[in-house]
Amino acid sequence: MNKKKPVTPFGWAIKRRLTELQIDQKTFCEQHGIPPYRLSNLIHGTRKATRFRHQVADVLDIPEELR
């Protein structure tokens, strides 16, 4: 049975900003050189991915309290 991980508050912030910018995850990853699986890790909290976490938070201007 494949159970999906829930989305973290940081993950929701990522999804919200991408929606506001009208850009999908794949395009965002391509534009910023982020592997799609790493963005998924950040959204679901399955890995820290610190380098990409800071990059995504900065590019999307995610508030400090959600990082």
Score class of each variant (00 low, 15 high):
55 Q>R: 12
38 R>S: 04
48 K>P: 02
52 F>I: 11
27 T>C: 01
62 I>W: 04
2 N>T: 10
50 T>Q: 15
42 L>K: 04
38 R>Q: 10
29 C>K: 04
7 V>C: 09
24 D>S: 07
39 L>D: 02
67 R>I: 02
26 K>R: 13
31 Q>T: 00
38 R>V: 08
62 I>R: 02
23 I>D: 01
33 G>P: 03
44 H>V: 10
49 A>Y: 04
33 G>H: 02
17 R>L: 04
5 K>Q: 11
25 Q>G: 15
51 R>I: 11
1 M>Y: 12
37 Y>P: 01
1 M>C: 13
61 D>M: 11
10 F>C: 00
38 R>I: 05
28 F>Y: 12
21 L>A: 15
66 L>A: 05
34 I>G: 11
29 C>L: 09
52 F>C: 13
62 I>Y: 05
20 E>L: 14
42 L>M: 05
62 I>H: 03
25 Q>H: 10
50 T>L: 15
20 E>W: 09
24 D>K: 00
14 I>N: 07
7 V>S: 07
41 N>L: 05
12 W>A: 03
47 R>H: 15
65 E>T: 15
10 F>D: 01
43 I>N: 11
53 R>L: 14
50 T>E: 15
5 K>L: 10
53 R>S: 10
34 I>S: 10
31 Q>W: 00
38 R>T: 01
11 G>H: 01
33 G>R: 00
2 N>F: 07
13 A>P: 09
48 K>V: 14
23 I>P: 00
47 R>F: 12
13 A>M: 02
20 E>Y: 09
62 I>N: 01
59 V>M: 08
6 P>Y: 08
22 Q>I: 08
7 V>D: 06
39 L>S: 07
53 R>N: 11
62 I>C: 04
48 K>S: 11
52 F>M: 12
4 K>I: 07
57 A>E: 10
30 E>F: 07
46 T>A: 05
61 D>P: 02
11 G>Q: 01
6 P>T: 04
31 Q>V: 00
7 V>Q: 08
37 Y>L: 09
28 F>H: 04
9 P>S: 04
48 K>D: 14
29 C>D: 03
26 K>N: 11
60 L>D: 04
44 H>K: 10
11 G>D: 00
31 Q>I: 00
30 E>N: 12
34 I>W: 13
56 V>A: 01
7 V>A: 10
15 K>Q: 15
49 A>G: 03
35 P>N: 09
48 K>L: 14
64 E>P: 03
32 H>I: 12
12 W>I: 04
53 R>C: 12
39 L>E: 05
29 C>T: 06
23 I>Q: 08
55 Q>F: 03
6 P>H: 08
57 A>N: 07
61 D>L: 13
42 L>V: 07
15 K>T: 14
36 P>C: 10
3 K>C: 09
39 L>H: 08
24 D>R: 00
57 A>F: 08
21 L>H: 10
30 E>D: 14
14 I>C: 03
3 K>E: 14
17 R>M: 06
2 N>G: 07
6 P>Q: 08
44 H>C: 09
46 T>N: 03
30 E>R: 13
